[in-house]
């Protein structure tokens, strides 16, 4: 059994190593190049398609819970009409981090299949755990997703409320705190916060 398998592998290896008989080197190089572009493009297009709010809320778990709660907040409607969508806050921009997050998200697909949060009650039971993942992620990357839109350097404290300006200057300017330390629950209802530091 093992002997036969080894023989097969060896003959496959021989085929791969032998030069092409029918196709020119130019064709193979160019063809490989083009196929690469197509696959790569297709991969990224598929990736981008999952990176839209429409995709996120196509599951009722997201639509009924977190999306409904996002709607009355400032990141859904506001004076200036600039919006933050789910991936703006939840998916990193640069490519490696995005892929890492997407691989994590494959686990969430299991959650969907097994109905881990398929009802409001189940969702609320899991909410603290889910929120803690996001807080940990944003704490670790110094609230990078917030900072993609909100830049401390361009905050005009005279335009902020006095307490916001003073607090940002003291804690954000010194780098002792990051956005998510103080702004939990900015987009969704909060889980049970007993024992969770919020400042």
């Amino acid at each position: 059994m093992a002997g036969r398998l080894r023989q097969r592998v060896r003959s496959l290896w021989a085929t791969l190593r032998s030069p092409s008989v029918h196709f020119s080197l130019g064709f193979l190089t160019l063809g490989g190049f083009i196929a690469g572009i197509i696959f790569w493009g297709g991969f990224n297009t598929a990736l981008e398609a999952t990176n839209t709010e429409r995709f996120c809320v196509s599951c009722h778990e997201m639509y009924d819970n977190v999306f409904e709660e996002l709607k009355p907040t400032i990141h859904y409607t506001n004076r200036s009409g600039v919006r933050a969508t789910c991936p703006d806050c939840h998916v990193p921009h640069d490519w490696t981090d995005k892929i890492a997050r997407k691989m994590q998200a494959s686990k969430e697909v299991w959650g969907k299949i097994f109905g881990t949060i398929s009802t409001r009650e189940r969702f609320l039971d899991q909410r603290l755990r889910l929120a803690q993942h996001e807080w940990a992620r944003l704490k670790a990357n110094d609230s990078l997703e917030c900072r993609n839109c909100h830049n401390y350097d361009y905050m005009d404290f005279t335009r902020q409320s006095p307490r916001a300006g003073a607090i940002h200057e003291r804690w954000l300017g010194s780098g002792e705190r990051t956005c998510i330390d103080c702004h939990k629950g900015i987009a969704h209802g909060l889980p049970d916060m007993a024992g969770v530091p919020q400042g």
């Binding site: 409320s161 307490r163 003073a166 629950g185 209802g189 919020q198 400042g199």
Partner: peptide
């Protein structure tokens, strides 16, 4: 001050982030 979006629910009380004994110093509230 404005209190838009401050959640006061069975789960969380955002007023007390700043006005609690522990939070008053950090936020000067």
């Amino acid at each position: 001050h404005a209190i838009d979006g401050y959640q006061v629910t069975t789960h969380a009380n955002r007023c007390m982030v700043c006005h609690s004994r522990a939070g008053a110093e950090q936020f000067q509230a």
